[in-house]
C-alpha cells in the first residue's frame, strides 16, 4: 500500500504546488490520477519517487509511505532499491544517444546480480519490436518504440510499483491502446500501478480506482467505474457530457460546484 498523507510541496521554497494531498494506492491495483495541465500530477509523482530535489522542490508537510516506511528524505536511488518503486517520467524518458541495449544497461546500472543479462532478454521477449533495434540509437526510433523501451528500462530496475506519467502523450491511438494493454498485463502479473493520464477515458477503463487533481488538491476520488459515470468528470475530462459544448457559462457553473467539493 502506497499512502500519501496531507502532502504539501513547494518549488524554489515559495511556489506552492501541492496543497495537502491525501491518497492511497492499494497494492496490486491500478490507481489513476487525472487532471488538467498544471494541476500538479507530475509534481506528485516527483515527490513520491524522490525526484523533487532534482527540480528544486521540497516536501514541506505531510508524508509518503510504502507500508509503514516513510519515503521522505530518501532519494530516487534508495527508493528504487529498497521499495522497488520506479518513476517513468513523462515524454518518454529514454537516452537518445545510447543504443537500445545501452539504455537497458543504464537502467540496470545499480544492480550487481547475475540476472541482468537474463532480464534484458526477458525485455526483448516482452517487446519483440525492440529486439530488431538493439544496436539502434534510441533517438532514431519511433515514439511508440521509445515508450516500450522506457517500460523495458523500468523493468530492468526490478520494480514492484510503477509510477507512470502520461504514457500516451503524443502517441497514435493504436499505439496508446497497445500501451494500455501492456500496463494491464503488468498489473495482472502483480505490479502496483499509479497512472497519470490526460487520456482519462482509456485510463479509467483499465483502472481500479481514480482521482481528479485540480490546483494541487484532490477534488474527486472513488472507484474508476464510478468516476467514468460521474457527471462532472464526463463533462470536463471525458468531453462527453450531456451538454453539446463547453461554454463559458458551463465553466462558471463548474467553478461554483467545485467550491462545494
Amino acid at each position: 500500500m502506497l499512502s500519501i498523507e496531507n502532502l504539501r510541496v513547494v518549488y524554489h521554497d515559495v511556489i506552492s504546488i501541492l496543497n495537502g494531498i491525501s491518497l492511497k494506492a492499494a497494492s496490486g491495483e491500478i490507481s489513476v490520477i487525472i487532471g488538467a495541465n498544471g494541476a500538479g500530477k507530475t509534481t506528485l509523482l516527483r515527490a513520491i519517487s524522490g525526484m523533487l530535489k532534482m527540480f528544486d522542490g521540497d516536501i514541506i508537510e505531510g508524508d509518503i509511505k510504502v507500508g509503514d516506511f516513510s519515503l521522505k528524505g530518501l532519494d530516487s536511488t534508495d527508493i528504487i532499491k529498497k521499495f522497488g518503486l520506479t518513476y517513468v517520467m513523462e515524454d518518454r524518458p529514454v537516452f537518445w544517444y545510447l543504443t537500445i541495449e545501452e539504455n537497458l544497461a543504464a537502467a540496470a546500472y545499480s544492480r550487481w546480480d547475475r540476472t541482468v543479462k537474463a532480464d534484458m532478454e526477458k525485455v526483448f521477449d516482452y517487446f519483440p519490436v525492440l529486439n530488431k533495434l538493439r544496436q539502434q540509437k534510441a533517438g532514431y526510433t519511433s515514439g511508440g518504440e521509445q515508450q516500450m523501451l522506457a517500460i523495458g528500462m523500468f523493468l530492468m530496475t526490478q520494480p514492484k510499483i510503477l509510477l507512470f506519467d502520461e504514457p500516451s502523450l503524443g502517441l497514435a491511438p493504436l499505439i496508446t491502446e497497445e500501451l494500455f494493454r501492456i500496463i494491464e498485463r503488468l498489473n495482472r502479473e502483480g505490479m502496483t500501478v499509479v497512472l497519470v493520464e490526460q487520456n482519462a477515458h482509456a485510463a479509467l477503463q483499465i483502472g481500479h480506482r481514480g482521482c481528479v487533481l485540480e490546483n494541487g488538491r484532490v477534488v474527486l476520488e472513488g472507484p474508476a467505474a464510478a468516476l467514468l459515470e460521474n457527471e462532472d468528470v464526463r463533462e470536463f475530462y471525458l468531453g462527453a457530457g450531456t451538454k453539446e459544448r463547453k461554454s463559458y457559462q458551463d465553466a462558471k457553473r463548474y467553478k461554483r460546484r467545485k467550491r462545494w467539493l
Binding site: S49, S76, T86, P93, F95, L98, E102, A106, Y109, S110
Partner: peptide, 20 residues
Amino acid sequence: GVAIRATSESQSKAMAFGID
C-alpha cells in the same frame, strides 16, 4: 561508461532510473 553517457544526456532521467 554507459552511466556517464546517460547522465551527460539528462541528469534527471538518469536519477529516475537509479543512477546516482
